[in-house]
């Protein structure tokens, strides 16, 4: 068997998997886009040396404490500091000035993963003098990623990429202002996280917990079917104050989302939208 070979996923086992995740752990995976979910399940099966999804189902039933670990395995944690720098430049120039006079700035990072994005935001806020008025919330269903996010330490091998992105968004700002190196890690200034709260939250099943001036949800919607995208985007737009900003991934689209009618584009290319005033 070649290393590329992944265990096949039988439809009946998949249905059982959905039932177990819902009943035992309260997660509804039915709205996840099937192609990437199946591939990801295959990858997890292989990593654990399980021959098929039936075996995983048995394990989930037998070891309930395995659930959290599994959630961490099945969710995708790809992120980076200032991923898509041009989107962050647009956010800085076209979105942040809208809140220059606002008494407070509540920002929600949905699917915050390992935290690079909320750090990117914190750095921008520091540089624009808005940080002290901001309240940042970083949520994810993966508690392992959130724990990593709270450490704000990343492998040094990512430095080139992160530093390039940083320089593209904040030319002339010294990198050392926010990052130092310890051993083989980059360590971000803990002051960046002073106003950040990390919370476990599942956007698929839970209502928003507050109203926000800014909601950032990038490369999470791509894992959902159009129907679930529609539901989640409704939830995100509901959580925005009138005039608030929604930022999604640059290849994501609101084509399937009824709530798009309640938004106007601030920058369509970079997927930055503003909730219409009432």
């Amino acid at each position: 068997m070649l290393p590329e070979a992944l265990p096949e996923i039988a439809e009946a086992d998949l249905e059982r998997f959905f039932q177990i995740m819902q009943a035992q752990f309260g997660y509804d995976f039915r709205g996840y886009a099937p192609a990437s979910l199946k591939r990801r399940l295959g990858t997890v099966l292989k990593r654990y040396g399980l021959k098929d999804l039936h075996a995983l189902n048995q394990r989930l039933l037998a070891q309930p404490d395995y659930g959290e670990r599994f959630i961490s395995e099945i969710t995708v944690s790809t992120t980076e500091l200032f991923r898509d720098p041009s989107a962050w430049v647009a956010f800085r120039l076209q979105a942040l000035p809208l809140f220059a006079q606002a008494p407070h700035l509540r920002i929600w990072h949905v699917g915050a993963s390992t935290g690079e994005e909320v750090l990117s935001m914190a750095i921008l806020l520091k540089e624009t003098g808005l940080y002290e008025r901001a309240h940042l919330y970083a949520t994810d269903i993966d508690t392992y990623s959130l724990a990593q996010a709270q450490r704000a330490r990343y492998p040094l091998r990512l430095k080139n990429l992160y530093q390039q992105n940083f320089a593209a968004v904040l030319p002339g700002v010294p990198w050392q202002r926010y990052v130092k190196e310890e051993g083989n890690e980059m360590v971000f200034d803990p002051a960046l996280l002073e106003r950040v709260r990390f919370l476990k939250h599942n956007i698929v099943s839970e209502a928003p917990f507050a109203s926000f001036e800014v909601v950032v949800c990038r490369n999470l919607l791509i894992y959902f079917t159009p129907a679930l995208q529609d539901q989640v985007v409704t939830r995100l737009v509901d959580s925005l104050m009138p005039g608030g900003i929604l930022m999604i991934g640059t290849k994501e689209s609101l084509f399937w989302c009824a709530a798009a009618k309640r938004l106007v584009a601030v920058n369509e290319t970079e997927r930055i939208y503003r909730r219409r005033s009432l």
């Binding site: 886009a33 099937p34 192609a35 990437s36 591939r39 990801r40 990858t43 995708v76 790809t78 490369n219 791509i222 894992y223 079917t225 159009p226 290849k251 994501e252």
Partner: peptide, 17 residues
């Protein structure tokens, strides 16, 4: 991005490894 084809007739993108 990875590009995937879905049975329902549309593309999905992913940022999996």
């Amino acid at each position: 991005y990875h590009l995937l084809v879905e049975r329902e007739g549309y593309f999905s993108l992913s940022v999996d490894e």
